[in-house]
C-alpha cells in the first residue's frame, strides 16, 4: 500500500498570504473595472486634468486600469492556489509597488504631475496607496507562512492512498 506523505497545503483561513492575495486581488480587480468610469477622454498612457480620479481621490488612466486588472488577476490566481504561490506573488507585487511608490514621485514632480512623463496619471493619493500596498504585501509575503514551499504543497497525486 502506498503511503502519501505529501503535505496537502495550508488552509485558506490559516494562511495570511492566501487571504491577503485574494483580498487585494479582488479589490484591485474591482478598482481596475471601476476606473474605466472615470477615464472618459483621458489619454491611454498620459496624465489627466484631475477629473479622472476615482471617488475624486485616486487619479487613473486606461493604462493604470489595465495594470490594476493584471495585478488583480495575478493575486487572485495565486491566492486561490497554494500558500507558497500566494507568498511569491505577494512578495513580487509588493516589491514592484515599493519601486513604483518611489519612482512615482519622480514621475509626478514635473509640472505637478501634468507632464507627459506621468504615464500612469499618478497623484499623491496614489503614492500613499501604492506604498501602503507595498508594505502590506511585502510584510505578509516575507513575514508570514514561512514554512510554505512549493515542494511541501504539491497537490495530491492521482491514485495515492492516504493513511
Amino acid at each position: 500500500m502506498q503511503i502519501n506523505q505529501i503535505n496537502p497545503g495550508t488552509a485558506f483561513h490559516r494562511s495570511p498570504n492566501r487571504i491577503i492575495a485574494t483580498l487585494f486581488g479582488a479589490v484591485y480587480l474591482l478598482v481596475g473595472l471601476l476606473g474605466f468610469f472615470w477615464t472618459n477622454g483621458v489619454p491611454f498612457a498620459g496624465p489627466g486634468d484631475g477629473s479622472n480620479a476615482i471617488l475624486g481621490i485616486f487619479e487613473v488612466n486606461p493604462l493604470h486600469n489595465v495594470v490594476h486588472l493584471l495585478i488583480g488577476v495575478a493575486l487572485v490566481i495565486a491566492g486561490t492556489g497554494t500558500a507558497a504561490s500566494a507568498k511569491a506573488a505577494n512578495s513580487t507585487v509588493g516589491a514592484a509597488y515599493l519601486l513604483l511608490g518611489v519612482v512615482g514621485f519622480f514621475l509626478t514632480a514635473p509640472d505637478g504631475g501634468r507632464n507627459a512623463i506621468n504615464f500612469l496619471s499618478l497623484n499623491t493619493a496614489d503614492h500613499v496607496l501604492h506604498l501602503a500596498s507595498a508594505l502590506v504585501l511585502l510584510a505578509t509575503g516575507l513575514g508570514a507562512d514561512k514554512g510554505a514551499t512549493r515542494a511541501r504543497e504539491q497537490p495530491e497525486p492521482a491514485g495515492a492512498t492516504t493513511v
Binding site: H13, P16, I19, I20, V136, A139, T140, A144
Partner: peptide, 8 residues
C-alpha cells in the same frame, strides 16, 4: 492569520 493581517 487575521490579527496578523489587521496589525500589518
Amino acid at each position: 492569520a487575521i490579527p496578523f493581517l489587521l496589525g500589518t
